[in-house]
Computed example of a mutant assay.
Amino acid sequence: MDDHARPSRQEISDATAELGWRLVLGAVYAEVAAPSLAQASQVAALAVQAAGDAGQGHLSVDIRADRAVLRLQSATQWAVTGLDIGLAHRISAELTGRGLRLAPGSVQAIEIAIDALDIRAVRPFWKAVTGYVDEPGPSDLSDGLVDPAGRGPAIWFQQMDAPRPQRNRIHLDVDVPHDAAAERIAAALAAGGTLLSDSAAPAFWVLADAEGNEVCICTWQGRD
């Protein structure tokens, strides 16, 4: 695949899922379990080495005491490109060749969704108060805001047609691997939640807690 290609979500998943990567909110992620912080750091170093210079602006690694979380996405296009898919294969070959296993693990991403009648009026406030920046390119966020340090959840704005009293105006979107959605929904329902709508599934399901506060479980599917 050409490095500059913008493959579809289905193509991205097909090209990386068997390697242990999962597409979540415009990036592919994989986790490598490690028994110590030092060994998680070694996993990160191996991944960076395998990616080489091409990994700059594409590969990021979150090192924890029991794992290294690998993430691939073009920092300029805010999307997975052909290069990212190639890097996923290179990194996977290097790590599996050393007896390490890549898996989806607990991979997920959180978005904050803000309902607004006038998005142009409220968006600058949220940009200023959070210190966030404009997302660098078109993505699932639809003109969203992102943490420039890559730590906080993304923010996006949902257009409202009319005021909706007695309904919360800010909700969370929990983006999970496509093959983890059913288990996550079942757990939420078992914990006292209610399924409000599955009309947009498998792109997202709308759930609510016992007091009606809403959350969406989201996947990449149903969006191409």
Rank of each mutant, 00 (worst) to 15 (best):
A191P: 03
R120P: 05
L46E: 07
L95V: 05
L100A: 12
G192P: 05
A5Y: 10
W21C: 06
Q49G: 13
W205F: 11
G144I: 10
G82T: 00
E94Q: 11
Q77A: 11
N168E: 12
P202M: 07
A93Y: 10
R98Y: 00
R71S: 10
M160R: 08
L207R: 03
A79R: 04
P138C: 15
I114G: 09
D224N: 08
D66Q: 12
L141F: 12
R120K: 08
D173K: 03
E183H: 08
T96S: 13
A27W: 05
L102G: 06
F157H: 05
L25Y: 04
V48H: 12
R98F: 00
A68E: 01
I12V: 14
G137D: 02
T16I: 09
Q77E: 06
D143R: 14
D62P: 09
G222F: 07
L189H: 02
C218T: 03
Q159L: 14
R184S: 12
W205S: 04
I85V: 11
V61S: 01
L87S: 05
A33G: 01
G20Q: 07
G192L: 10
D115F: 15
R169E: 09
A38G: 13
P177I: 00
P148C: 05
S13W: 11
S92K: 04
Q77P: 04
D62C: 14
L100H: 08
R6E: 00
